[in-house]
């Protein structure tokens, strides 16, 4: 019940951003649409978690975002360097690596793997329980995992476990 209400509020905010029309006709239909979506798919947003847990995770994501953005800029510059280098093939040393992550919850693991995909020279291939398989473009990128990112995600999303 609480999950559905929280989903309804989120959907209402999204509707206001989308719609921008506040006459009675559109507002009524907006509320009806939000109720429909919250009833049929509201549970999906929370995947069995309590609402407070999910809210804290979202706030943690907001704190983590700017740092991630800066890392993406750095990683893009690194890819730029490799792409524009005349002897590009000498710079590359692709390899598959596997390591164990300390993160517990699914959401934190998924965030971690998406961040890996977005940052320097690495792509997540699969997450199997706590084992992550990563395809790295260079040796230095492979060595830098899991690194600081995991600590930051643990601090942002799983405060009770650090």
């Amino acid at each position: 019940m609480k999950a559905k209400f929280a989903a309804f509020v989120i959907m209402l905010i999204f509707w206001v951003i989308l719609s921008g029309m506040f006459d009675a006709f559109h507002l009524t239909l907006g509320v009806i649409s939000c109720l429909l979506v919250a009833h049929f798919s509201g549970k999906m947003l929370f995947e069995g978690l309590r609402v407070e847990v999910r809210a804290r995770q979202i706030l943690g994501m907001l704190a983590y975002g700017p740092w991630l953005l800066w890392e993406i800029v750095l990683s893009s510059l690194q890819v730029t360097y490799i792409v524009l280098h005349p002897q590009m093939l000498d710079k590359m040393d692709p390899q598959l690596i596997r390591f164990k992550t300390k993160l517990k919850s699914t959401f934190a693991r998924v965030t971690f793997s998406q961040s890996i995909t977005l940052t320097p020279g690495t792509i997540t291939v699969s997450v199997h329980d706590d084992e992550m398989t990563v395809y790295a473009l260079t040796r230095s990128a492979a060595d830098s995992l899991p690194g600081e990112m995991e600590k930051r995600i643990a601090r942002a999303l799983e405060p009770e476990q650090t």
Binding site: S19, V37, A38, S41, S113, V127
Partner: peptide
């Protein structure tokens, strides 16, 4: 789990967008 979690977070917003397109 990557695909599942992402889709789970996306589907309600996509549905609301579809209803918005119909209403407007």
């Amino acid at each position: 789990i990557i695909l599942e979690t992402t889709v789970r977070l996306m589907v309600p917003f996509i549905q609301l967008y579809g209803l918005y397109v119909i209403v407007h």
